[in-house]
Nucleic acid binder design. Structure first.
Lengths: 162, 162
DNA sequence: CAGAGCATGTAAAGTGTTACATGATTTA
DNA sequence: TAAATCATGTAACACTTTACATGCTCTG
């Protein structure tokens, strides 16, 4: 199971049934650049999950517009739970573009480094403000809170170390 | 430029010239599950970078064993610097398998949640100890330090929230 | 009622993974 | 000297991105 497939299953578990485009929109709304949410990734993944019996589709056309509502099957729920409970994958460091670039920042010429430091600080502060402006009742509120901690950690590192 | 290509360029910038396998071994040693470091990803990426003129290869065969030494060209260094200084990409949240799974953990049955909490706590504590055991003179020491902060943040969240 | 955006996809090309292959060198 | 592992790849398959296509529905 890819991370995208796992993420789709958790989305349907957390938020209940939705259409294919609803799934796609949820990824489009995600701030992470990791999720491009391109149609060519989402729709084939949904088809794979449906063919594997993890998702059940029921017709939900409204008027002339065709649509299908997707929900987790029992085996889909079981697969999702197995996936989320895999500790070694869950605690891996994942992918952090900030951590990947930081060692090079340290080696920049002083004036270039200072300029970049200011840009990074502004960007992170803005991002924290944007998170604070989000609806605390949003289904992704917990993820936003976790991203906020990450951004605060970065801000502290920028100020103290860069 | 993909993140893998950018990471290869930063590696050669930080550590100087090395062979193809040296590049691959650096990714194999990385703790992040994001870098599979499969030969089928690394070697084609190196070929692309060389064809684009960002890397220069010189023969470095030893005895009967063929090998080439790879180093950054001037345009390779310029591309790498442009890549690391892209602020909006650098401050994106990236991909965090922990954050992706956390909302589901919260919804588990109490006894299941408690068991998982213990497993996660043990795993993260072990990972922190493993980082502490690493050589502080390692070229990736800064990245290790940043991962350590991430793991400490997770540990605190596990203890306080999960 | 025309244009913007909603909703659902497909096709080609690029990238990554898994598995295999080959010969060189080190180590027990 | 046999086995392990170093070092360098390739091939088939899977997945993602980019670009395109199609018709519907709302809004000014």
């Amino acid at each position: 199971m890819t991370e995208l497939e796992g993420a789709i299953l958790t989305l349907l578990y957390m938020e209940g049934a939705m259409t294919s485009y609803g799934v796609r929109r949820a990824f489009l709304d995600s701030p992470s650049s990791f999720w491009s949410a391109s149609a060519g990734a989402i729709y084939p993944a949904l088809r794979r999950l449906e063919e594997a019996g993890l998702l059940i589709a029921t017709d939900a056309s409204r008027g002339n517009r065709p649509a299908k509502s997707l929900r987790l099957s029992e085996s889909g729920k079981a697969s999702m739970l197995e996936w989320v409970k895999n500790v070694s994958t869950a605690i891996g460091p994942g992918f952090d573009p900030f951590r990947l670039r930081a060692p090079v920042w340290i080696k920049l010429e002083p004036e270039e480094r200072k300029a970049l430091k200011a840009e990074l600080e502004t960007g992170v502060v803005e991002r924290i403000r944007a998170i604070d402006a989000l609806d605390p009742g949003h289904p992704d509120a917990l993820r936003h809170a976790l991203e906020r901690v990450q951004q605060e950690t970065r801000l502290e590192w920028i100020r103290k170390t860069l």
